[in-house]
């Protein structure tokens, strides 16, 4: 659905995108991750036909962004990082405005507006003035606007930015619904846990260069992030440092971090990171008990996308 080949974009002396290549298939939800100024928004603006690349090619549904902008607009919905609204229109008029702008026939507009309002749970705000809506509702209105012409591809730039937790959850549910509808979605966000929940693949970009693109599992593998287990030792147990040394000698263990002793004299715990690809935990318990450690608790900690992101972006381009 989306194909970017060797795209470079410069703003004066600043290279916003540096030979970026990327492919996103149908039905894929692509999480675009990167620090501020990495080039995420520029990539989306190029795909939306708002900016022209200095070099390289980009296509959406087979249409070139350089030469077939009108064709792309029919199949693509773009929501910028900050949603501007016409403060003199009601929600209904705002959506009708864009329905008309997308050449939806007058007779069909009412039904289309009703359906997107229902999907975004804004039906009871139909006649509210747009600027009287809360930020969360305005974001949902932005999604409704993007869906008005039933695009195959959605570009959502930081849709959860500035939203409170409830609004974020509502927006996430909405995006999951769109995912179920089979839309190809490219979404950028700083809230990586949410991206991990809804994305089928991710791309990590820094300083205009794509550091990684692929599935989340591949990202963890590429980042060298294995499963982590938190082990708490009982008071009076064997020395944690000795247990750590014992574990480090095992090839299945990538690393062990010692946690400081508690204020009540309880021994410090261990954070054990397994070698990527190792999933069994029984050898850990056996090894610790063999060394005289008494285990108070044994808690596998899920791997976070943040960890993979930090590892993949850490100093690579500096």
């Amino acid at each position: 659905m989306i194909e970017i080949r060797g795209v470079t974009k410069r703003y004066g002396a600043l290279t916003a995108l540096d030979n970026l290549s990327l492919t996103i298939g149908p039905g894929e939800v692509f999480g675009f991750i990167g620090p501020n100024g990495a080039g995420k928004s520029t990539t989306m603006k190029i795909l939306a036909g708002l900016l022209q690349p200095d070099s390289g090619t980009a296509t959406v549904c087979g249409h070139s962004v350089a030469t077939e902008a009108p064709a792309i607009r029919r199949v693509l919905g773009y929501m910028p990082d900050f949603l501007g609204v016409y403060d003199d229109l009601t929600v209904d008029e705002y959506l009708q405005f864009f329905a008309s702008a997308f050449r939806i026939e007058r007779g069909r507009r009412r039904a289309v507006v009703s359906s997107v309002l229902e999907l975004t749970d804004l039906t009871d705000k139909r006649h509210a003035m747009v600027d009287s809506l809360s930020r969360g509702m305005q974001q949902r209105l932005g999604v409704a606007r993007v869906l008005i012409h039933e695009p195959k591809v959605l570009l959502l730039d930081e849709p959860a930015s500035g939203l409170d937790p409830r609004a974020r959850i509502e927006l996430r549910e909405l995006l999951l619904e769109l995912k179920r509808m089979g839309k190809c979605i490219m979404v950028s966000s700083h809230i990586l846990t949410e991206l991990a929940e809804m994305s089928t693949s991710i791309g990590i970009i820094e300083k205009g260069r794509l550091l990684f693109a692929g599935s989340i599992a591949d990202a963890f593998a590429r980042a060298g992030a294995g499963e982590r287990i938190a082990v708490a030792l009982e008071p009076g147990s064997a020395d944690g440092a000795a247990a750590a040394e014992r574990l480090r000698a095992d090839a299945r263990v990538a690393g062990v971090t010692l946690e400081p002793p508690g204020p009540d004299g309880a021994p410090g715990g261990l954070i054990v990171e397994l070698t990527p690809g190792v999933h069994g935990h029984h050898f850990l318990i056996e090894s610790l008990m063999a060394g005289g450690a008494r285990i108070a608790s044994f808690t596998p900690r899920p791997i976070k996308l943040e960890d993979a992101f930090l590892r993949l972006t850490k100093g690579q381009l500096n």
């Binding site: 939306a48 036909g49 607009r73 910028p80 501007g84 016409y86 702008a101 606007r145």
Partner: peptide, 9 residues
């Protein structure tokens, strides 16, 4: 609102 307007037909 300019960007959004320019992504319409």
């Amino acid at each position: 609102t300019w960007q959004v307007l320019n992504t319409t037909l």
